[in-house]
């Protein structure tokens, strides 16, 4: 069964049904699970795709592709644009959407394996915790040990962001993600909730942004650790800054301690080192993820160096 609602008012997701935007996560899972749920396909909803600007900021329709976000917000929201343009592959960015990216399911190899069961697939344990978790969290906050998959969620943490749902209600990013303690959830939207749009505050004047992901290969690999930063720099001194790190916890983390070090400072090697070190505070790695403490340092360092270079 498939439904094509043409307006937000007519979206009705039946029990066991799923909503589909670009399909870049769902189609993979449907094949793996040999599943045929009722699909509510949102691509025909009026106004679902597209970016519009106003003095209040930008409204990114939930069905806007990642390629469009990367291309159109390049000047106003460079951190969001660069991070979005660095994820997945060109083909996935061309069809995957921002709403889908925020609500994709975890990429944990246990969750995705049909022979395995875990909290998120209806089970009552995390087999990765007692099994293999090489790509797992380094800030261990709940029973699930796989990092949140959304690079865009990490980037949006750096802005005043409001999610507008199809029923007209709104949620903050914190309300979307929670604190990562609930191992059964990738996000806290209710079944049938649809992200109609993402509203992001206006960029700062002359805002700079930088992003880096640590991976083993060239590109197109889930990050071991990733970091994003946006900043406004006056006369070489950071006036405003926001920094977030991903690949490290069941939710992406805003790094306020590091921001406190950076603000009102110049981006010297020493400041960068201190900010990077601050990002590792509270890390409690799993047996296989100790290396990610080093990688948080490395990734934040590289990200801030890129931020510095962006101003030169």
């Amino acid at each position: 069964m498939i439904q094509f609602p043409d307006s937000y008012d007519t979206i009705e997701v039946p029990a066991g049904g799923v909503v589909r935007s670009g399909g870049t996560d769902l189609q993979q899972r449907l094949r793996a699970e040999n599943a045929r749920p009722t699909i509510v396909d949102l691509t025909g909803v009026d106004g679902f795709a597209g970016i519009s600007s106003s003095p209040d900021g930008v409204r990114i329709g939930g069905g806007t592709t990642m390629a469009a976000v990367a291309a159109e917000l390049d000047a106003s929201h460079p951190a969001l644009a660069i991070a979005t343009g660095s994820l997945a592959t060109p083909q996935v960015r061309a069809y995957g959407t921002i709403a889908g990216n925020l609500t994709q399911h975890t990429r944990c190899w246990y969750y995705r394996h049909p022979e395995m069961s875990c909290f998120k697939s209806g089970g009552d344990s995390c087999p990765a915790r007692t099994g293999r978790h090489l790509y797992g969290v380094v800030f261990d906050r709940g029973e699930c040990v796989h990092p949140h998959p959304s690079t865009i969620a990490m980037a949006l943490l750096c802005y005043e962001t409001t999610l507008i749902l199809a029923d007209g209600s709104s949620k903050t990013m914190d309300e979307l993600l929670g604190d990562g303690n609930d191992p059964t959830r990738d996000h806290l939207l209710a079944d049938g909730d649809v992200i109609a749009a993402v509203h992001v505050e206006p960029g700062w004047t002359d805002e700079r942004g930088a992003y880096f992901r640590s991976i083993s290969r060239f590109e197109a690999e889930w990050p071991l650790v990733e970091a994003v930063v946006r900043a406004r720099v006056d006369d070489g001194v950071i006036a405003e800054v926001a920094l977030a790190v991903g690949g490290v916890a069941t939710v992406p983390l805003r790094m306020t301690a590091a921001e406190a070090i950076l603000v009102s400072s110049e981006l010297t090697d020493e400041t960068i080192a201190a900010a990077a070190a601050a990002c590792t505070e509270g890390a409690n790695p799993l047996p296989e993820t100790g290396y990610k403490v080093d990688l948080v340092l490395a990734t934040v360092t590289e990200t801030l160096e890129r931020l510095r270079a962006a101003g030169e």
Binding site: Q27, R31, Q91
Partner: peptide, 24 residues
Amino acid sequence: GVCGACTVQIDGTPAVGCLTPATA
């Protein structure tokens, strides 16, 4: 969506056929 062997062009833009719903 990793290997690209199923890539086709849709209105001139490359897409991976494995992750693209046929209805698209």
